[in-house]
Design a protein around this nucleic acid. Sequence first.
DNA 1: AGCCAGGTAATCC
DNA 2: GGATTACATGGC
Length: 326
Amino acid sequence: MRPTHLDHTDTLELPVTGDGPFNALHTFWKPSHYLTGLEAHTETRSWRTFRVDDLVVGVRLLAEDRTVIADVYTDGDYKPAHRDHLIRRLIASYGLDENLAEFTELAAGVPQMRDVLRALSGMRQSCPEDHFEIAVIALLLQNVTIHRTTQMTRNLLVHHGRLVHFDGITLRAWFTPTEIAQVTPETLKEQDRLGFRAKSLPHYAAFFREHTTEDLQAADDLGEAVQQIKGVGPYTAAVIASHASRDPAAFGIDVWNRKILARRILDADDAAPEAVTRRLNQLFPGRAGTAGLYFVEHEYLNAPVAPLLDPDGIDAWNEALERPTP
DNA sequence: AGCCAGGTAATCC
DNA sequence: GGATTACATGGC
């Protein structure tokens, strides 16, 4: 599979305007995130793809103190509107304008959060995915092991996404709702191995083709709105709200983070989801989502799901993505 | 073999 | 309403 070459078209300097500390590495790279091929990280740099309208965009990110330098690579006509859109997208994706001081002060007073804060202070939630893309991620997480989620994600991106090369790195890029809407449920089931999700994905595509991120940001009750989609329940709705809409109070609880949080805040191997949520809200009023993020990332800090790339390993990374899949 | 994964919807009482 | 149960798939 030969990647599309993206040309360098822009450099953006984005100041971190939100208050509180800023930790660039852990804002860009999350130790708990599974491997998608949509992004790659070394200690000092990150690469990520975005779909901006129909444009495929590659971004190389690095931080100098409290300024994020984003080098932009594109495959087509990069217009001022694309630039504006991308600037807003990057600021929102990494929470550069979000205030973290209040959470950090709150967390400093919670004993269970002490070590976590020492390791991760300044981490902001990362969600380079838009509403549609994060909904698809959440769909692929439903009732399967992370191994199968990774497998289904790879199938979808290899068969229906893009492969691009820029700044020396090869990455995959998302399909748009319109693009995936062309694919039949039979293909999604038989070729992409989505199981019962094959019936849901077309509903997701139809909904998010009608309702853009801009529309949804204005939604009265986003959770209620997206639960109209077949295959979106409380968990997926909370993931969308907490990640794409960055609601610091929203927290999508599942059997995975439930066990992590039970140990961290209830001193138990497991607990009822209501008990976990209640305690999390009690300790971090209005900031349950942020607190959950910190606990979960800390859990994986010493054994990341997708470890940082060694700069010498980039050729091997590129070859792995460009190799035809069996 | 059978159970269970980073859930959801349909179908019970 | 709240408690089952089927839903696809694949790994252990």
